[in-house]
Each structure stands twice: as C-alpha cells, then as structure tokens.
C-alpha cells in the first residue's frame, strides 16, 4: 500500500463523511445509500492490493507444502466474514439492529459450514495418532 493510496482513502472517507452529515438532515435514505456506495468504492479501490496479498499468501503456502485446500478454506472464511460485517454494519447504520443480527447469524452459519470439513480432518488426525 503506497503511502499515497492511504492518503487518498482517508481523504475520500473524510469528504464522504462530511457530505453524509449534510445529506442526513435532508434525506436520510439517500444518505444511507451514499454510505453504502462509499463503502463499496473504498473496497473496490483496495481490491487490487488485496488480491496481490492473497497471491503472496498462495506462494508462501505452496512453498511450505501447506495443502492449498486449507488455504482456500481460510480465504473463503475471510470473504464470508468481510461480507457479513459489511452487510451487518450497513443495517446497523440504518438503525435495524435486528436485521443486522440476522445477517451476522447467516454469516456464522456459512463459516461453520466452511470450517466443518477442516474440523473433521483434524479430529481424524488426532484419533489416528491416539489409536
């Protein structure tokens, strides 16, 4: 992350926050849409750097013979966690705490589903060691 990009993101966030404060007095629903859009824009701006980090992780995993299946699972869990957090936070900003809780519940279930095979593999390994 070149220093310049950080300034860009921080500056963009501050400007957006100022605009949102003004907009929220007149049209709260448009302000919510705008905060959603700003969140998406910032993530899309970071997507390039994030995918290069993931590439580095992949190389490290390949070099250390960590099986790529587990790295894939970790990646998916991170993706699910990020999406769930994004959705839940927007719902909470809109004042809908209950909806945010349901979105988080869905995220937890998705992560459990992703993690189940890994847990089973670990248990098998342990049983085999003990037996």
């Amino acid at each position: 992350m070149a220093g310049l990009d950080l300034f860009q993101v921080v500056g963009f966030g501050l400007v957006a926050a100022l605009i949102l404060v003004v907009l929220r007095q007149h049209r709260p629903e448009v302000a919510l849409g705008l905060s959603l859009a700003v969140g998406a824009i910032i993530f899309l701006f970071l997507a390039g750097r994030l995918s290069s980090v993931i590439g580095v992780l992949g190389q490290v995993a390949r070099r250390s013979q960590v099986s790529l299946a587990y790295l894939g699972t970790v990646l998916r869990v991170i993706g699910v966690a990020y999406l769930t957090e994004f959705g839940a936070q927007v719902c909470r900003d809109a004042g809908e705490g209950a909806v945010a809780a349901k979105v988080e519940l869905a995220g937890k279930v998705a992560i459990l589903l992703l993690a189940a095979p890994v847990v089973v593999a670990v248990l098998d390994l342990i049983l085999r060691l003990l037996a």
Partner: peptide, 8 residues
Amino acid sequence: TVRVMFQL
C-alpha cells in the same frame, strides 16, 4: 469482486 477474489 469479492466472489472472484475470495473464491466464494
């Protein structure tokens, strides 16, 4: 983008 990046 998220789907492509995190292979979801």
